[in-house]
């Protein structure tokens, strides 16, 4: 995606200073509480038709970001804008109207589908919520959606347990597609699937984006998958974005030491390739007591004295390439 055209458009989804602190009750009366800063001051935007990959290891807060944007949980602070309109301040009923533009695909295709509903009713649910149509119209629309995601019309009246994992995820995608949303939050949509099925579902998502032009916030931990589907990639560490850049730039020349280490861990399907893998020392620090300064300094091979005191801001180290590191740019 060209930077000039990006700057001209209104982002379809914009997030500023997004925070979510979970209170953990301590003591017998649960009075004193130490918040877990699951998401701590996130900012990014997604252009129409763009896919932003959000990567990070388990527990870094990436799934919380998805739930915050969908308003399934309430943010502690920050702004969320959908197509230029703030949705974080909307009441429940006003938010409901905006949900047309914002849909979701979850990780577990088994738990994402009510086991007691037929496939046709599952996909028709969002349609029935927003478009009062006749039964025949809705069924025709659902059959059309089935075709779009590669399911057959004769599978309409089946129950979820009669589908395979990949087919179930296609069903989930059909449901997300039903209202023709502007943004689909994909929360680890393929990590529960077999590798061969992963590729099919990823390619289906790409094809659908070409056809309908929606944007994806693609949350994942698999860097190869993210590289395949994303236009831009954001890397999260302990509730903060440490680097965000165009996919090619980020994979070719990572600016943040954490991104560098992550990318060195991606297996290369070439036995002759010499991998110089960066092994990080220690574990991810507890999000209840994150280290002061740069969150990553406890494990960073290049850490200096000031990394332990100053929190680095996300700065533009190259055009369109942002990193939160004192040592770059």
């Amino acid at each position: 995606m060209n930077d000039m055209t990006v700057a001209a458009k209104t982002p379809v989804l914009a997030v500023r200073n997004l925070k979510k602190h979970f209170a953990i009750p301590k003591g017998i009366f649960g009075l004193a509480s130490a918040p877990v800063k699951a998401v701590d001051g996130l900012a990014f935007s997604i252009q129409p038709g763009e896919t932003l990959g959000l990567v990070g290891e388990s527990g870094c807060g990436k799934s919380t970001v998805g739930k915050l944007i969908l308003r399934l949980i309430e943010p502690t602070d920050g702004e969320i804008e959908l197509a230029g309109k703030r949705i974080d301040t909307l009441s429940r009923s006003a938010m409901r109207a905006e949900r047309r533009g914002l849909q979701v695909v979850f990780q577990d295709p088994y738990a994402s589908l009510n086991p007691r509903m037929r496939a046709v009713d599952i996909v028709a649910e969002p349609l029935r919520n927003f478009e009062p149509q006749s039964k025949a119209e809705i069924e025709a629309r659902v059959a059309w959606l089935f075709g779009k995601v590669g399911l057959r019309a004769d599978q309409l009246s089946r129950y979820p347990h009669e589908f395979s994992g990949g087919q179930r995820q296609r069903l989930v995608i059909a449901r997300a597609l039903a209202l023709n949303p502007k943004v689909i939050v994909c929360d680890e949509p393929v990590s529960a699937l077999d590798v061969s099925v992963q590729a099919q579902v990823i390619n289906l998502l790409i094809d659908l984006q070409h056809e309908f032009g929606m944007s994806y916030l693609f949350i994942a931990h698999d860097l190869a998958v993210v590289q395949h589907i994303s236009h831009r990639v954001a890397v999260m560490y302990l509730g903060r974005i440490v680097e965000i850049a165009d996919k090619k730039a980020l994979y070719a020349s990572p600016q943040h030491p954490y991104t560098e280490a992550l990318l060195s861990a991606v297996p290369v399907p070439d036995p002759t390739a010499k991998s110089k893998r960066i092994i990080l020392q220690g574990d991810v620090p507890s999000p209840i007591k994150p280290p002061p300064g740069c969150h990553f300094h406890t494990r960073c091979p290049y850490a200096e004295a000031r990394c332990k005191i100053d929190t680095p801001a996300l700065r533009e180290v190259r055009p369109g390439h942002f990193a939160a590191c004192h040592l770059r740019g």
């Binding site: 047309r100 589908l113 649910e125 039903a178 209202l179």
Partner: peptide, 13 residues
């Protein structure tokens, strides 16, 4: 359950 979250996200009351 994710299917309840998905229903909320689909605008079900």
């Amino acid at each position: 359950q994710p299917y309840v979250d998905a229903a909320i996200a689909s605008g079900t009351r």
